[in-house]
């Protein structure tokens, strides 16, 4: 027998049977930031059979404080996150089949990644992609585990198709704006706490110990010493268009997606949210001016210069990202500063 998993096998809810189940499962981790590196490391150490991890970004110095698979050399070389993650994960456990891709994930990409996946781990940083994951999970009947954090606050919910309310039931609409780790900061213990909740639920699913699942929406604030777990079963909606009686999976359709376009000859990407918005430009100006960039505002638009990029925000929700033709890079900046 392999010594490697002996302590996990001694833990009776897992045991040898559970370990053998874990070793036959395939987990898809979407995002290789703080939550993604945490989840991936835990699952690879635990001996999952196959782990696929995807992300569109590269390693920066500001990641090292909490993104546990990366080292200084990765930031110096601006290594794509999944390339650096894959290298480290293989060193941790060479028995696991690790598939890493540098990929800007949207509907088509997930449809291709989802084949024979047993569980999806959310390690993303925005609700556009989470609503797509939510619809994919329902369409293919694959559980997924929502996790998010900002500051010292974190939240997680396990979504089982056909049983629990889905994220669409809980949110009703997609949250726009809001604070992000790049505007409100983040401490690593908040990340680790969410990772602990997500990966423990993942282990229960992988060993098929469904009775042990938490069955509650959990949230906490480590700095304020708060902890809340509430039952949300009552919020499951029979007429939900994602998980109800006659689902249409609205977030997989083109109309409901955030759209991007490279503007010809302008070194600029336009990002347009699915619905017209009424952005509070003055409030955004206050938030963004704390980011070290230069902010200027007129009644129609807000301009935000940060390093070599300039973001121009219109009241109707549109954003122009100047200084790049790369859609993935533009999306990264968009979600970093606008959530």
């Amino acid at each position: 027998m392999s010594e490697r998993y002996s302590r996990q096998e001694l833990f009776s809810p897992i045991g040898k049977d559970g370990q053998s189940k874990i070793s036959r499962k395939h987990v898809l981790v979407i995002g290789a930031g703080a939550l993604g590196t945490g989840s991936a490391e835990a699952l690879v150490r635990a001996g999952v059979g196959k782990l696929t991890i995807v992300d569109r970004d590269y390693v920066e110095w500001s990641n090292l404080q909490r993104q546990q698979l990366y080292v200084e050399e990765d930031a110096k070389q601006r290594m794509p996150k999944t390339v650096a993650a894959e290298k480290r994960l293989r060193m941790i456990n060479s028995e696991v089949d690790i598939q890493a891709s540098v990929l800007d994930v949207s509907v088509e990409e997930i449809e291709q990644l989802i084949d024979e996946v047993d569980l999806i781990m959310d390690a993303t940083d925005n609700f556009d992609i989470r609503m797509i994951i939510n619809d994919i999970s329902q369409k293919y009947q694959i559980p997924w585990i929502y996790g998010a954090c900002v500051g010292s606050y974190g939240i997680s919910h396990t979504i089982l198709p056909g049983e629990t309310p889905c994220l669409h039931c809980l949110l009703e609409t997609v949250p726009m704006g809001g604070v992000t780790c790049d505007t409100a900061g983040i401490i690593s213990p908040a990340v680790q706490m969410v990772v602990a909740y997500q990966t423990t639920e993942a282990m229960k699913l992988l060993v098929e110990d469904y009775h042990a699942l938490r069955k509650k929406l959990v949230s906490f604030d480590l700095w304020k010493n708060h902890h809340t777990a509430i039952g949300v079963d009552k919020l499951k909606k029979e007429d939900c268009s994602s998980c109800g009686q006659s689902p249409t999976y609205p977030f997989l359709s083109f109309e409901n997606r955030t759209k991007t376009a490279v503007l010809c000859g302008r070194d600029t990407v336009q990002i347009r949210p699915p619905e017209r918005m009424n952005r509070d430009l003055e409030k955004l100006a206050t938030i963004l001016s704390e980011q070290g960039g230069r902010v200027s505002l007129n009644p129609y638009l807000l301009s935000f210069q940060i390093e070599k990029h300039r973001l121009v925000l219109f009241k109707d929700g549109r954003v122009l990202i100047h200084g790049t033709k790369d859609i993935a890079k533009a999306k990264t900046l968009y979600h970093r500063y606008l959530g």
């Binding site: 995002g31 930031g33 703080a34 939550l35 993604g36 959310d122 390690a123 993303t124 940083d125 925005n126 609700f127 989470r130 996790g147 998010a148 954090c149 900002v150 606050y153 974190g154 939240i155 809980l170 949110l171 009703e172 949250p175 809001g178 604070v179 992000t180 780790c181 409100a184 983040i186 969410v194 929406l217 949230s219 809340t228 509430i230 039952g231 949300v232 009552k234 919020l235 979600h335 959530g339």
Partner: peptide, 27 residues
């Protein structure tokens, strides 16, 4: 647990126990 549509008409009184969970996006 409260349905979102009922926040407006749901009254609160002294000593009520309230839990508020905020959905955040970061990760």
């Amino acid at each position: 647990i409260l349905e979102k549509g009922s926040h407006q008409e749901t009254t609160i009184s002294d000593r009520d126990k309230i839990e508020i969970v905020n959905f955040v996006g970061g990760g």
